[in-house]
Structure formats: structure tokens, C-alpha cells
């Protein structure tokens, strides 16, 4: 039996500002499996951020239900504090929120507010720094501001991990990082998911990122859930994403075009290795035909 850490049923959310109403989410029903990596994709204004803000109780449903790890997020009532500890959120450009003098103090900020013992805080901070690849003996006493952009972002991640979340929500986590910073961030993120069994929810419009990391994709458009499936299934359907203003990862795009040009390349080819293999095979057959 599958174990759903988040289940959303018929969720509607309407923003009310004065007399104006704006429907941001319309009848969303979805489930996210425990321990998986889910990606929520869609263009600006599609409702991605509104949706994930229900996962830690920052927003409440206008109607419908959201159950997160056994806690019900309802229209009113209920204690949502417990949820904010269970669901860690990393916003865009999180390094902008670092403020302490040392890396240690910054990561310790959250756990200290939980009134934990000094020893417990210490254990959590050291572990979180290890997890994100910033060994405490080298980094704990340094100022976050003398680190590289990628390292600073991992300090912010460590700060969230020190709260021992069961679910980690990341909003455009690698925007503005260069290739190295990105690869490193992915590596440590996958480690958190695999080693600690944390469920990861990515909000992203970078399809290459999503193709690398996510088990399941949820496509939002104008507040509706218009499609869901594995990256392989979704990117294998041709230019289907274009109608929602999205695009496939460049490799899928190349393969889709080759397919359209009549090349016998299977559409569910997804990785570089598979593509290489398929194209070499096609080339070999071509040669054989020429030689006959």
C-alpha cells in the first residue's frame, strides 16, 4: 500500500482583497508519496506558491481539505504550529535571509527557539552542516558572508534541516547558481531525501532540474492541476507542455523534433545514455541499408 504524506482533496483557494476576489486554486486533488520527490511546475501566476503554502499552514483552504502527515489544514481552527516544524520551507534566494555572525549561529537560530537543550541544539546543527557538505570544523565559525553563493544557500538549507522537518518545500532552489553550485546543491538535496527519508517538494520552472530530481510532476495552469505523471511519461508526450507556457528539457526537445522528422527514435527515451544508444542504433541500420 502506498503511504501518502500529503493528500489534497477538492482544494479551492480564493484571495480576497477588499471587494476584489481572485480564484488562485480551483478544485485541486492530488497525493504525494512519503519519501518521494515531487515537483510542482507552472508559469508565473499558475498557483504553485499558493498551493505549497497550504502544506505548512501559511494559507488555509477556502474550501476542500489538505492533510499533511496526519494533520488537517482546515478553513479555521486546529493547531498549525506543529505543522510548521514538520514542514520546512526554503524560499527563493534563501541566502538573503542569513543574518548571524557565524554559520553555526545561523543554523542554530531555529532549534534554539524550540527551547531545546544546548547539547541537542549542538547535535542538530553539527549534523545539519555535515549533511549539506559544510564540515563544522571548517565552516561553523566562519561568517556566512564570506562563503560562495552556493555555500551560502546550503547554510540556509542546513538551517531548515536543523528543525528536523519531514517535508522540505523548496521554491526555485537553484536560481542564480552557476553549474557547480547547482550540481552540489542537487547532490546534497538527494542525500537528504535518501538518507533521512525527507519528502522533497520542488517548485520550479527549470525542466532540466525537474527531470533530474523529481519522481512525480504536477503541472498547474491558471489554478488548476492540468497534468500529473513521472517526468519520463510527461516529457515523452511530445510538445504537450507548450500549451501551458512550459517547455521540455532541451534533450527531450531535440528527441521530439527528431521523431517528428521521421527518425525511428522512441519517445520515451529520456536520459543522455538512452539517446546515445538509440541514435547509434539508427545510424548502424542506416549503414546496413546503404551497404545492401
Amino acid at each position: 500500500m502506498t503511504d501518502h504524506i500529503i493528500s489534497v482533496k477538492n482544494l479551492y483557494h480564493t484571495y480576497q482583497s477588499g471587494p476584489l476576489q481572485k480564484a488562485a486554486l480551483l478544485d485541486i486533488t492530488m497525493e504525494i508519496e512519503r519519501g518521494s520527490c515531487a515537483a510542482i511546475i507552472g508559469i508565473t501566476g499558475s498557483g504553485k506558491s499558493t498551493l505549497v503554502q497550504h502544506f505548512n499552514g501559511l494559507l488555509r483552504p477556502t474550501s476542500g481539505t489538505v492533510a499533511v502527515d496526519g494533520v488537517n489544514v482546515q478553513a479555521r481552527g486546529g493547531d498549525l504550529k506543529v505543522l510548521r516544524q514538520r514542514v520546512g520551507m526554503l524560499f527563493q534566494f534563501p541566502e538573503a535571509q542569513l543574518f548571524e555572525h557565524t554559520v553555526y549561529a545561523d543554523v542554530a537560530f531555529g532549534p534554539r527557539r524550540l527551547k531545546l537543550s544546548k547539547r541537542e541544539v549542538r547535535t542538530r546543527v553539527l549534523q545539519a552542516l555535515e549533511t549539506v557538505g559544510l564540515p563544522p570544523h571548517t565552516y561553523a565559525q566562519r561568517s556566512p558572508f564570506e562563503l560562495s553563493g552556493g555555500q551560502r544557500r546550503r547554510v540556509a538549507l542546513a538551517g531548515v534541516l536543523a528543525m528536523l522537518p519531514k517535508i522540505l518545500v523548496l521554491d526555485e532552489p537553484t536560481t542564480g547558481l552557476d553549474a557547480d553550485g547547482r550540481t552540489e546543491f542537487y547532490y546534497y538535496l538527494q542525500r537528504v531525501q535518501q538518507k533521512d527519508g525527507v519528502t522533497v517538494i520542488l517548485v520550479s520552472h527549470d525542466m532540466s532540474e525537474v527531470a533530474t530530481l523529481a519522481d512525480q510532476l504536477f503541472v498547474l495552469h491558471n489554478g488548476r492541476l492540468v497534468m500529473q505523471g513521472t517526468p519520463r511519461a510527461i516529457f515523452g508526450q511530445g510538445n504537450i507542455l507548450h500549451q501551458w507556457g512550459l517547455t521540455e528539457p532541451p534533450l527531450s526537445e531535440l528527441l521530439i523534433q527528431l521523431h517528428k522528422q521521421g527518425l525511428a527514435i522512441p519517445l520515451d527515451v529520456f536520459t543522455l545514455e538512452e539517446a546515445l544508444h538509440a541514435l547509434q542504433e539508427i545510424e548502424t541500420t542506416r549503414h546496413e541499408k546503404e551497404n545492401v
Binding site: D178, A179, D180, R182, L251, L272, L276, L279
Partner: peptide
């Protein structure tokens, strides 16, 4: 430290093959 787009990488490896 530049990211190589997958299509470019594919071309390079096809060429090597």
C-alpha cells in the same frame, strides 16, 4: 564551470562514436 547543455553533450559523444 559552465554547464554543458545536454544536446551539445550528445553531439560531442555521437561524434566521438
Amino acid at each position: 564551470k559552465l554547464a554543458i547543455p545536454e544536446p551539445i553533450e550528445l553531439v560531442s559523444r555521437l561524434r566521438a562514436a
